[in-house]
């Protein structure tokens, strides 16, 4: 059932994001072609349009993520979603996994556009790419790859936490105490909850980092110095992500209040 939920969520998000991502790539291609012609004004206009589309792609990704959760689960469509033979956990996870995958696709499109601009630079030569990778592979040690892997895992966890905090901020509006005023309930409460969570989160994690048996501000001389601090960070992020996930699940499973 989870695979089916994911499939439907993935295609529902695609309708909103795929056009803007394709538009972003098209704008990058056109801008680069114009840059090749050396016509300054059209190139500048195209570059500005590309910049605007890139910002729009970022905003639309965020808005789509929020809307998919709020509209599909907590508005009228919730009557269908919450009566499907699936668990609340599966509903939340399908939304999060689809959002993470689509954000990854968006990031890939952004990097692709950036690569197009690098290709167009006057100093660029294809040999630079092979030189770059040759340098990396000849100098990198086993510990370096571990650090890279930890950084990637940490980034994914941070993004997952960001998503779950958005879900939590929207879900708290289901609690009976926020029933009274619709403006407060739908505008101020989620925003306030999001800010409050991150204030507490930053405060608690910085306190924990002081209690850990290593100096987080110590000078890094080699990549292996980062292994333990990064791993500790991942462990903390994992715990917080899990807690927030279960909190969202608890609110939606026990305090769902569809109008």
């Amino acid at each position: 059932m989870f695979a089916k939920l994911l499939k439907h969520e993935f295609s529902a998000i695609a309708k909103g994001l795929l056009p803007i991502y394709l538009l972003m790539i098209a704008a990058a291609v056109i801008t680069n072609l114009l840059l090749l012609t050396r016509y300054d004004t059209p190139s500048a206009i195209a570059a500005a349009i590309f910049g605007a589309i890139t910002v729009a792609a970022f905003v639309i990704t965020l808005v789509t993520t929020i809307r998919r959760f709020r509209r599909n689960l907590l508005k009228d469509e919730g009557y269908l979603m919450f009566t499907l033979p699936v668990t609340t956990k599966q509903l939340i996870l399908s939304k999060a996994v689809a959002a993470i995958i689509w954000s990854g696709i968006g990031l890939f499109c952004g990097l692709l556009c950036g690569f197009l601009f690098i290709l167009n630079a006057s100093t660029f030569e294809w040999g630079m790419i092979s030189d770059f990778f040759a340098f990396i592979f000849s100098h990198a040690q086993a510990g370096d790859w571990l650090v890279v892997a930890e950084v990637i895992v940490s980034m994914i966890l941070n993004f997952t936490l960001f998503l779950f905090v958005i879900y939590l901020s929207i879900s708290v509006t289901q609690l009976p105490i926020f029933k009274a005023n619709d403006t407060v309930r739908h505008r101020i409460v989620p925003f306030g909850c999001f800010i409050l969570f991150y204030i507490i989160y930053i405060g608690v994690t910085s306190l924990i980092s002081k209690l850990l048996p290593f100096d987080a501000n110590a000078t890094i001389t080699q990549s292996s110095d980062l292994l333990i601090p990064l791993l500790s960070g991942i462990a903390i992020e994992l715990v917080v992500v899990t807690l927030v996930f279960f909190l969202v699940d608890y609110i939606l499973a026990r305090h769902l209040n569809l109008e």
């Binding site: 529902a12 469509e77 269908l80």
Partner: peptide, 28 residues
Amino acid sequence: VKTKEIVSFLPERSYLDESVKVKRMLSF
């Protein structure tokens, strides 16, 4: 989950996704 497999519910409100075609709801 077990009871939702055997209960077919028609709410008073429209729970259909406005942006899809009718046949997509059938597939759903």
